[in-house]
């Protein structure tokens, strides 16, 4: 049996409503944004998580790091195992030892993820393990990290402030910080969304190269861009309304999508081979606001293949083929 690096079991995350302080204690004032979500990442794979805005992708990433802004957004139930230890049960001190060492995260917006008043070098040194090396070693290691992520003229860049670097360079620095302690899991939360397309490709190449160098570590790649998923991921999950709808190996996912939502997503992509006259076919409707999802399958009210049972009863997660899971009443 294959061992899993990260196992998320029945995770539920909820947002408290505005009058949280006044009526504390009553549970109906919170809305679940991640709903009974389970997910397994194998050691060494690049795991793609695809979803629309507001589907709970980033909240999932923050839950794994336990960086949610509690008490307004909090984990209600579930377990997150990293190499067998439950992250959710760790004390603050032990959690700090895991952050950066075992899991690290690359954020979406490189410009705001770096402290504007500190130099790049200072922030990189911060990311390097505090107890191992002497200052000189640390500095050399920081420079080698910068070189590794493709920052030219690394020595002098150490003394730059974030505003003196371009977006792509800043994202490279963020990646350098994320890989500094060789974590076993890197969460990449839409790392290319804020960058333009050419830089996107470079950053993806970089991530792929880094991953091939450290093949035992995994990457959880969160994105809304199916093209990127196709380029670098081994396994793909689709998330909608805080639930995983379908999980499949990459090739299977693109050749044989089973869930209507996945099919809709893939159909709505423009195809360069087709004639220009063909209109894009988007999924009908919009994502409902939080708490307004149907009680059964969350996608039921937008689904073209919905039957009466879809609105009432939650579908089970079924393994239709090997490693291909779908949550749908159709199967």
């Amino acid at each position: 049996m294959m061992s899993f690096l990260l196992e998320i079991k029945n995770l539920t995350v909820s947002i408290q409503n505005e009058n949280f302080y006044i009526s504390k204690g009553s549970n109906n004032l919170s809305t679940n944004v991640i709903d009974n979500l389970s997910l397994d990442i194998r050691a060494g794979e690049i795991y793609g998580l695809v979803g629309e805005s507001g589907s709970g992708k980033t909240l999932l990433a923050l839950s794994i790091m336990r960086l949610l802004s509690e008490p307004f957004i909090k984990i209600n139930s579930g377990e997150i195992f990293l190499n067998g230890t439950d992250i959710l049960k760790l004390s603050y001190e032990n959690l700090r030892k895991i952050r950066g060492n075992k899991i690290s995260i690359i954020f979406q917006e490189p410009s705001s993820s770096l402290n504007p008043v500190l130099k790049i070098g200072t922030q990189l040194l911060e990311a390097i393990s505090p107890d191992t090396n002497t200052n000189q070693d640390k500095k050399e290691y920081a420079i080698s990290l910068l070189k590794k992520v493709g920052v030219p003229d690394a020595e002098s860049r150490m003394n730059y402030y974030p505003h003196q670097l371009s977006g792509g360079m800043k994202q490279r620095v963020m990646i350098a910080m994320a890989i500094a302690r060789k974590p076993s899991l890197i969460i990449a939360d839409e790392p290319t969304t804020a960058l333009d397309v050419t830089i996107q490709a470079e950053i993806l190449d970089l991530l792929r190269n880094l991953h091939s160098e450290q093949s035992e570590s995994s990457i959880l790649f969160i994105t809304h861009n199916l093209a990127i998923v196709n380029q670098i991921c081994d396994t793909v999950s689709v998330i909608y309304g805080g639930e995983i709808m379908e999980t499949a190996p990459r090739d299977e996912f693109f050749s044989n999508p089973l869930h209507p939502y996945t099919q809709g997503l893939l159909n709505s992509l423009p195809d360069i081979n087709k004639s220009k006259r063909i209109k894009l076919s988007p999924i009908k409707g919009t994502v409902p606001p939080l708490g307004k999802f149907p009680p059964g399958c969350k996608f039921a009210d937008r689904c073209e293949k919905a039957v009466s049972i879809c609105n009432k009863i939650k579908p089970e997660n079924k393994e239709l083929q090997k490693n291909h899971f779908v949550k749908c009443h159709l199967y």
Binding site: L62, M65, L67, S69, R96, K97, I98, R99, G100, N101, S104, I105, F107, E109, S112, S113, L114, N115, P116, V117, L118, E126, A127, M174, M177, A178, A180, R181
Partner: peptide
């Protein structure tokens, strides 16, 4: 403290005093 660079600093395991004195206070 809600800005992303503080989140990023927390994500690499920065201690509370480091967050306060190194990151939030100067800004």
């Amino acid at each position: 403290k809600a800005k992303e660079y503080v989140l990023a600093a927390r994500s690499i395991g920065a201690s509370k005093s480091r967050l306060i004195f190194r990151h939030i206070l100067p800004n």
